[in-house]
Design a protein around this nucleic acid. Structure first.
Lengths: 195, 195
DNA sequence: GAGCTTCAACCGACCCGTTGATAAGTCTTG
DNA sequence: CAAGACTTATCAACGGGTCGGTTGAAGCTC
């Protein structure tokens, strides 16, 4: 059996990055939180850039699996988008990873190591690709409308959700603030609404 | 007249914060960029928190004046909103402060000193207040529509613009990416568009 | 206006805790 | 024993911040 220290380090780093970003967390923070030596972290992740990139890589992989599961379990495009928004509502309400790491790191992008930048770019591509596919699917089946095309609407939805996370954080991690912005952005894609 | 160094320090700090956020810039960076001693910076801004808070305070003050001028010069609500979006299009295109400091710091909020947090909150209040007033004005005069009310539409527009900045930054500070998201968000408030 | 004080602006040197990273060795386990 | 996991001890560089001091312009007094 493999050591679980590796995963616990990633967990800790993920939590720290969600609340502080890349530049404001240290090996010492993780060491203190987990009770393992700093050197242990370096043993698993030689540099800080490696660690952060791996956090992102695992995050993307988890998202990918999550999306695959959602695609298998839910066929209604509207429900799929609602699952996306609902996922973040839950995270914010439960104060558990209440911010998208990809979006957070995107704002710090110019000060990030290359390996991390690539992961952030990859995450944005993953997400807008997935949203675009769901919306396109919904348009074809008549469950959704995309006035400016699936891709453009996907970019807008993603941006609005990211902005809603910012607004919620400023309001003290208030899930209501998030929902008030994100839900209508989703509703706008339903063909029935809006005269 | 006040010392020129004081303003130059604020300028430098502002630039550094726009590209790196709060945690990833240092007094040494400013010192090197400006050719002044670190102690000089501490003379004008005792702590880093003071410096960052003052950068935000000046930013907000400048915004306030900008908005007042815009209110005086432009009466059409649509044109006012277009000036807002256009302002950021310019900033991103010219690579000059190509990100809203308020939005950037909002993502790092949990790791910021209190004085800075308050300024960030104040900036969000300023901005959503201003957008809300413009939209309300436009609704009354019939130049704009606000399906979910001026305040809610203002929050959504703000969030979408912030998200558009993120997307543009991830795309390598691409003004086209910003416009493709932000412009339609604005168009949606025009009563003529959207069947 | 010479001499004195005051005061903000500014600087080089320094303090000390923290940072990411390394070396070298111990412990475990197959 | 060999390999990987993990530790303690340590490093140079850097972080924000302080200290003591110099400069120079303004103000006061005789």
């Amino acid at each position: 059996m493999v050591s679980d220290t590796y995963e616990r380090i990633l967990d800790s780093a993920e939590h720290l990055m969600v609340s502080r970003g890349y530049n404001a967390f240290s090996y010492a923070d993780i060491s203190g939180e987990l009770g393992v030596g700093k050197a242990t972290i370096h043993h698993h992740f030689p540099t800080k850039a490696d660690l952060a990139a791996m956090v992102l890589a695992r995050y993307r992989k988890s998202n990918r699996r999550h999306v695959e599961g959602l695609f298998a379990a839910v066929s209604d495009p509207v429900a799929r988008l609602e699952a996306y928004v609902g996922y973040w509502e839950d995270c914010i309400a439960r104060q558990d990873l209440p911010f998208c790491i990809g979006a957070l790191l995107a704002s710090e992008l110019p000060s990030l190591p290359d390996a991390v930048v690539q992961q952030v770019r990859g995450h944005f591509a993953d997400l807008s690709g997935w949203l675009g596919a769901v919306i396109e699917d919904g348009v074809v089946s008549g469950h959704l409308k995309a006035v400016r095309g699936p891709k453009a609407e996907a970019e807008t939805l993603m941006a609005t959700v990211h902005g809603a996370m910012l607004a919620a954080r400023v309001a003290g991690s208030d899930p209501a603030v998030f929902s008030a912005i994100a839900r209508p952005a989703l509703d706008r894609l339903k063909p029935t609404v809006e005269a």
